[in-house]
Design a protein around this nucleic acid. Structure first.
Length: 459
RNA sequence: GCCCCCAUGGUCUAGUGGUUAUGACGCUCGCCUUUCACGCGAGAGAUCGCGGGUUCGAGCCCCGCUGGGGGUACCA
C-alpha cells in the first residue's frame, strides 16, 4: 500500500515535477459528458504541464454498452476539444489475456478464490451477521472470482483533492473481480491496466472513490505500488441534480452544435471546480497548462452554468481574427462568402449559432416570422419614412458607409425624426426583424440594389 | 439499511484563527448609442447549512445534526 502521506504534502503539488503518466479511461456509453470532458482535460493539463504522458484507454469490458460507434463518439469529442493523447486508445477487452494471467497469479497465491455465492447470498449473509461483518466466501472449485479482503485493518485512500479517507475492512465485502467465465470486472481490470501502464496519477470522478479501496487491495495482492489518486467532485445540472441528458446541453457534441468554441469550453470547464489564488477568469489553454494544480481542485460539486459559458464564449469569439471567425462560421453554417457579414456581426454574437439568426437575412432575404416588429415599425408613418429613405438612398452617387450615413442623417433632419423612427423601419425592411447588425453597415454590405429593392417592397 | 464524500451571495469561486468576507457570471440602474449587443461605471444580493464546543478571537479547528451527492452488481 502507498506509504503514509504520499498523497498529501506540498511535494504532491503537480506542475514541474517528475513526468507524470496519467490516463483518461472512459467507458463508451455514448456521447462524452462534460464531466468526462473535464476529467480528460484535467488529466491532459497534468500531463502537458509536467512533460508527462497521457494515455487513453477505453473501458469496454461491458460488452453490451461498448459499440464501435460509442467509442468513436468519445474519440471524436476529444479530438474536437483538442485534447490529445500520447498512447492508446487501448482497449481493455484486448488485454483480457493479461487479466487472466494476473487473475491466475492471485488465485495461486490465495489472494483470490472462486465462489458460487450470488449477490443475494451476500445480502443474506449481511442480514444475518450485521453490517460490521463483510462477506467472506469459502473457496470452491468453480464460480466467480472474489478478492480476499483482510478481516482486520483498513485501507486508506490518499487523495490529492480530499486528503485521506479510511475504509475499514470489516465494512467491505470480498468483491467479485472476474466473472465465472474468467472475464475481468472493472475494479480488477483498472488496477491491472493502470499498474501495467505505469500510471502515476489516477484522476477521475468522485463516483469512483468508494471503489478505490477495492482497487488498492488489488494492487496489494499484485505486490505493486499504487498510483496517487485524485477524485473530482461530480457536476450537477441547473436543478442541483446530477447532470444528465435531460438537463440541457450536457455533452460536448451538444455544446459543439450550440456553437461553442473548444477553447472556451476548455477554459470554462477548467474553472468548474478548480481555481487558483489569481482572480483571472479568462485563461488561455497554455496558461492553464502552466497553472493547473490538481491539489487545488475544489471538493464540492459544481453546477454547469451555460450563461457563464455563453459569456465566456463571446469573449473568445471576439478574440478571434476576422479570418479565423469567418472560417469558423463558414464551417458551422456550411455557407461561404460570409466575411463581410461576419465583420459587421461579430460584436453581437456569443456563439457560432447566434450568427445566422442575426445576419442570415443578408443572404436569404428578410425573415417573415417577426410580426411584432412589422406591426410596430411598418406603420403608415413608417412606410412614408421608408419612402423618403428610399429616394435619398437611390439618389446616392456612391454606395458606401459615409455616403449612406450622410444621406440618412439628412432624412432624419429634414423630417425631424428621432433616430429610431427612421432606422427601425429600414431595419425591418431589410431584415424582417428589429435586431440586426448596425444599419449603415448592413446597407453597405447588402449592396445598393438589394437594399433599395427591400426598402421599396416594404414601403 | 450500511459505507464514504461534500456544505462561502442565484451560479462558479478566493479565503487556510484577527479582512468592511475576494473575483467572475447572472440580475438592476446609468453612460455610450440607430434597436439589440459590445464596452465602461455604479448597485443590490452572504446572519459563511444549523447547534454546540476550543480560543481573547472561528468561514477557517473539534463534536453532533440537517441537507445534498456517491458507493454498496458475475456495470463502468
Amino acid at each position: 500500500m502507498a506509504s503514509r502521506g504520499s498523497g498529501c504534502g506540498p511535494e504532491a503539488r503537480t506542475g514541474i515535477m517528475s513526468p507524470m503518466r496519467v490516463r483518461f479511461a472512459p467507458s463508451p456509453t455514448g456521447a462524452l459528458h462534460i464531466g468526462g470532458a473535464r476529467a480528460a482535460l484535467y488529466n491532459w493539463l497534468m500531463a502537458r504541464g509536467s512533460g508527462g504522458t497521457m494515455v487513453l484507454r477505453i473501458e469496454d469490458t461491458d460488452r453490451e454498452r461498448s459499440t464501435p460507434e460509442n467509442v468513436e463518439q468519445i474519440l471524436d469529442a476529444l479530438r474536437w476539444l483538442q485534447i490529445d493523447w500520447d498512447e492508446g486508445p487501448i482497449s481493455q477487452v484486448e488485454r483480457s489475456g493479461r487479466h487472466e494471467e494476473v487473475l491466475q497469479q492471485l488465485l495461486d497465491a490465495g489472494h483470490a478464490y472462486r465462489s458460487t455465492a450470488t449477490g443475494d447470498d451476500v445480502k443474506a449473509y449481511k442480514a444475518e451477521h450485521g453490517a460490521d461483518k463483510g462477506f467472506r466466501g469459502t473457496p470452491e472449485a468453480e464460480g466467480a472470482v472474489r478478492l480476499r479482503v483482510p478481516d482486520e485493518g483498513a485501507t486508506v485512500v490518499h487523495d490529492l483533492v480530499r486528503g485521506d479517507t479510511t475504509f475499514q475492512h470489516v465494512h467491505l465485502d470480498d468483491p467479485v473481480i472476474a466473472r465465472a467465465d474468467g472475464t475481468a470486472l472493472y475494479n480488477f481490470a483498472v488496477a491491472v491496466d493502470d499498474a501495467d501502464a505505469g500510471i502515476t496519477h489516477v484522476v477521475r470522478g468522485e463516483d469512483h472513490l468508494s471503489n478505490t479501496p477495492k482497487q488498492l487491495l488489488v494492487y496489494v495482492a499484485m505486490g505493486v505500488e499504487p498510483p496517487q489518486f485524485a477524485h473530482l467532485p461530480l457536476l450537477h445540472g441547473p436543478d442541483g441534480k446530477k447532470l444528465s441528458k435531460r438537463h440541457g446541453a450536457a455533452s460536448v457534441q451538444e455544446l459543439r452544435d450550440a456553437g461553442y468554441l473548444p477553447a472556451a469550453i476548455r477554459n470554462y470547464i477548467a474553472l468548474l471546480g478548480w481555481g487558483d489564488t489569481d482572480d483571472e477568469t479568462l485563461i488561455s489553454t497554455d496558461e492553464l497548462v502552466r497553472r493547473f494544480d490538481v491539489s487545488r481542485v475544489s471538493k464540492n460539486p459544481a453546477q454547469f452554468d451555460e450563461k457563464k459559458l455563453r459569456w465566456m464564449n463571446g469573449r473568445y469569439l471576439r478574440g478571434l481574427s476576422l479570418d479565423e471567425l469567418t472560417a469558423e462560421l463558414e464551417a458551422f453554417t456550411g455557407r461561404t462568402g460570409l466575411r463581410e457579414a461576419v465583420a459587421i456581426s461579430r460584436e453581437k454574437i456569443q456563439t457560432l449559432a447566434d450568427f445566422w439568426p442575426l445576419a442570415g437575412f443578408i443572404f436569404d432575404g428578410p425573415t417573415d416570422g417577426d410580426e411584432k416588429a412589422r406591426a410596430k415599425w411598418l406603420t403608415e408613418e413608417g412606410r412614408a419614412t421608408l419612402g423618403a429613405a428610399h429616394d435619398a438612398l437611390a439618389a446616392l452617387p456612391a454606395w458606401d458607409h459615409p455616403s449612406i450615413e450622410a444621406a440618412l442623417q439628412e432624412v432624419l433632419e429634414a423630417r425631424e425624426l428621432k433616430p429610431g423612427a427612421l432606422f427601425q423601419p429600414i431595419r425591418v425592411a431589410l431584415a424582417g426583424t428589429a435586431v440586426s447588425p448596425g444599419i449603415f453597415e448592413t446597407l453597405t454590405v447588402l449592396g445598393r440594389e438589394p437594399s433599395l429593392e427591400r426598402i421599396a417592397a416594404a414601403r
